[in-house]
C-alpha cells in the first residue's frame, strides 16, 4: 500500500514538473496576448504562481485528490468533466480488446506449450512475432481500408453511425451496454460494427503478448514433478493440462492480463486517433497539439491512476487465488 502511495506521489511530482517546465506560459493562455501588465500580474497571483514551488506542489496534490485538474482551454469545460465524458469510450474499447486477447491468446499459448514444436506452436510464434513487429496505427489503417473501404463489413470511424448518435440514453457510458439496457438492437448492432475492428486490433496486440507469456508459464509448469504425479494417476492429457498445469499458471496469468489491460488503456491512444474514437487517448492527443496542458496532465494522471489501480487489483487477486500467499 505504501509503495502504491509513493508511486502515486511520484506520478504527481512528474506531471507537476512537466507542467512547470513546459515552455508554454500558462498565464498567457488564460489572459490572452493582449492583456496589460497589471492584468497579467493579477492572473499570475490568482493562479498561485508567485508562491514557492513546494507550496504550489502541495496545492497541486490537493487539487488532484479532489478531482480538480483545472479547466481545459480548448473545450472550456472542467478537465474532470471532459474526462468523465471520454473515459467510458476508452474503457469499452480496452475491455473488449482484452476479452478478445484473453479468449484467443490463453488457449493458443496453452496448446502451443502442450504441443511444443507442433503446427499450432509455429502459428502462435508467427502470430506473436508479427504482433511484436507491427505498428498498431498502420495495421488499423490497413484494417479500415480492407474491412471498411473495400469489403464494407464494419462500420467506419467513430463509435456510432450518425443516425444513432445520442439516441441511446447514457447509463454506463458504454454504448454496447447502454443499448442493451435500452433494448435497442439496431443501436447495438451499429455500435458493435464500429467497435469490432479497433477492438480486434487491440485484441491482436494483447493476444500476441498473452499467448507468449501463457506458453512460457505453461512450459515451466509442464516440466514440474506434480505433472508426472497427475500422469501417474492415469489422468488424461486434457485433465493434466487444464486441471493441473493451467490452474497453476492462472495465478501469474492474472498479473499478465492486468498488465495487458493497462497497456491497452494506454495503447489505445494511436488506435483512437486512427478510428476517430472519442476516448481518452484522442482527448489527450488533441489537447496536446492545442497546447492545453491541464487537459494533457489530467489525462496522464487518470491513465497513471488506472495503472496503479490495476497493479493493486492484480496483487489482491494474487492473494485470493494463490493458497501459498495466506
Amino acid at each position: 500500500m505504501l509503495s502504491l502511495a509513493l508511486t502515486l506521489l511520484g506520478l504527481l511530482l512528474v506531471t507537476f514538473i512537466i507542467g512547470r517546465v513546459m515552455p508554454i506560459d500558462p498565464v498567457l493562455k488564460v489572459v490572452g496576448d493582449r492583456a496589460s501588465q497589471a492584468q497579467y500580474e493579477a492572473a499570475y497571483q490568482a493562479m498561485g504562481l508567485d508562491k514557492p514551488l513546494v507550496v504550489q506542489f502541495f496545492g497541486y496534490i490537493g487539487d488532484v485528490l479532489t478531482g480538480n485538474f483545472g479547466r481545459s482551454i480548448s473545450t472550456g469545460q472542467l478537465v474532470i468533466d471532459d474526462i468523465r465524458h471520454v473515459f467510458p469510450a476508452t474503457l469499452e474499447l480496452a475491455t473488449l480488446g482484452t476479452l478478445i486477447g484473453v479468449s484467443i491468446g490463453v488457449p493458443l499459448g496453452v496448446i502451443a506449450a502442450a504441443r511444443r514444436g507442433g503446427i499450432i506452436d509455429q502459428v502462435a510464434r508467427v502470430v506473436a512475432l508479427v504482433g511484436y513487429s507491427m505498428p498498431i496505427f498502420w495495421l488499423g489503417l490497413m484494417g479500415l481500408l480492407v474491412f471498411y473501404g473495400i469489403l464494407g463489413w464494419v462500420g467506419g470511424p467513430g463509435r456510432q453511425g450518425i443516425i444513432f448518435d445520442g439516441m441511446v440514453p447514457s447509463v454506463t457510458g458504454l454504448i454496447l451496454v447502454d443499448s442493451l439496457i435500452a433494448g435497442d438492437w439496431a443501436a447495438f448492432r451499429d455500435a458493435f460494427s464500429h467497435i469490432i475492428l479497433p477492438a480486434s486490433l487491440l485484441g491482436y496486440f494483447s493476444l500476441a503478448y498473452i499467448s507468449r507469456m501463457t506458453r512460457s508459464f505453461m512450459l515451466e509448469q509442464l516440466g514440474a514433478e506434480y505433472i508426472t504425479t497427475a500422469r501417474v494417476k492415469g489422468l488424461s492429457e486434457g485433465a493434466v493440462i487444464w486441471r493441473h498445469a493451467f490452474r497453476n499458471i492462472s495465478i501469474p496469468l492474472v498479473t499478465v492480463i492486468a498488465l495487458s489491460f493497462g497497456s491497452l488503456l494506454e495503447g489505445s491512444v494511436l488506435t483512437e486517433i486512427i478510428f476517430s474514437w472519442p476516448g481518452l487517448g484522442q482527448y489527450i492527443t488533441k489537447s496536446l497539439l492545442a497546447g492545453d496542458m491541464s487537459a494533457v496532465l489530467g489525462g496522464t494522471i487518470v491513465v497513471g491512476v488506472c495503472f496503479i489501480a490495476l497493479n493493486l487489483l492484480s496483487d489482491l487477486l494474487y492473494r485470493v487465488l494463490d493458497p501459498r500467499s495466506k
Binding site: E225, Y226, T228, V232, N248, R324
Partner: peptide, 15 residues
Amino acid sequence: SMVMQDPKFSLNPVM
C-alpha cells in the same frame, strides 16, 4: 502407481 522423491514438488501446490 508411483511415489516420487520430493512431496514438495510432486503434489499440486494449488489443489
